[in-house]
Design a protein around this nucleic acid. Structure first.
Lengths: 202, 202
DNA sequence: TCAAATATACCTATCAGTAGATAGGTTAGA
DNA sequence: TCTAACCTATCTACTGATAGGTATATTTGA
């Protein structure tokens, strides 16, 4: 796997998660890597191919980072906390929004390939969450309801925080949710002032 | 106020709420109204002007639709139900996402004018929600936390439902939230099968 | 072993299409 | 006669994409 190909995906993901799929061109990517736009087409024949590759890579990364709920000895509350942290920390130090939240919004302008990969993201997350909630005896319909609620709050929190350039919005939204679910406070790593400042300036 | 100007905003809002600000051109609008793109520039000199006008109009509409919490004799639960319904019904029969959720996501590519109007949307909603929650004695920090949670869930729910073309995702997420807040079920108008089918096909 | 063939990763040059925007002309109604 | 609301025509900039060339490295076969 060539390094260039990976770097192109890195840059594309960066652009998508800041301004959406339409916010960058092959020439932008080329400039970033000091190559020509025709060379970008060598690695990804079409922009849809690139978008699909980036989204698939994102899903794989997400899937790999999810703690296996069945085998895990962690409590449900702790599993959920780790799940929330995945969103939180990535936002904190990459100052970016969930890739699939961005692509969700642009759905009408994207190719079927990309949309299918975004669909897979939802399926992946909802099935993991449902599994977690079902674990301690919650009936499947309730577990599914909870899953939708959690994912919606997380994505909505990210988008609102990004829009207002205020990480606290995310923290407030999610800690409210967590308390409703587990009747205890959500512990998050201390708000790093540098990261927040960096988010503001971006 | 010319009719054309209003129609242009209607069409622009429609495009934005389906595919984002970058998903349409002045030529698209011109075609929709059977005029020329130069005439669109007559009404809105720049695309930023148009975007700002559309977002401001959206805010005004939202503000007007919000029931005044102070004077209202409705319970907090009922006020919230009505608030939720604003998002729900608009999604149901316009098959579209919250305008500001779309614009939030594209923030990095938009002008300062548009972004300021989106900021005003969050301020407007959060202050209304906070006022509602404060009404029955909830301390301000808790009320604010609730407000972030509610708005995040609603916007995240809309985006997820739009992405998956499945209204039920929104309903699940929001009814979960509502039950946490008021310990009773959220009553929503029956899912209109036609509207859902229409959403799926779009 | 060494030349021929192939593959990889880039390049130049260019295409047709579309974008937002502007200058300046036309028309119809007050 | 003035102005609002359109028009034609055109500009520059940028988009994704393609054709075809080059240099380097790797693999293959006699």
């Amino acid at each position: 796997m060539s390094n260039t190909r990976e770097q192109l995906q890195d840059r594309a993901e960066h652009y998508i998660r800041q301004g959406g799929f339409g916010s960058f061109s092959f020439r932008d990517l080329a400039k970033d890597l000091n190559i020509k736009s025709a060379s970008v087409h060598y690695h990804f024949p079409s922009k849809s191919d690139l978008g699909t590759a980036v989204a698939e890579r994102y899903n794989r990364r997400f899937e790999h980072a999810l703690p296996g709920p069945a085998k895990s000895k962690l409590t449900t509350a702790e599993l959920l906390r780790q799940y929330i942290l995945m969103f939180y920390t990535e936002m904190m130090h990459s100052k970016q929004v969930c890739l699939c939240a961005m692509l969700s919004v642009e759905r009408a302008t994207l190719t079927a390939d990309i949309n299918a990969t975004v669909d897979a993201f939802y399926a992946l997350n909802l099935s993991w969450l449902t599994e977690v909630f079902t674990r301690d005896g919650l009936p499947k319909p309730q577990a599914y309801k909870r899953s939708c609620q959690v994912l919606a709050t997380l994505q909505g929190g990210l988008i609102g925080a990004w829009s207002q350039q205020n990480v606290d919005y995310f923290v407030q939204a999610v800690s409210g949710l967590y308390k409703d679910l587990f009747a205890k406070n959500l512990r998050l790593p201390k708000n790093d002032p540098d990261a927040i400042a960096a988010t503001r300036e971006a």
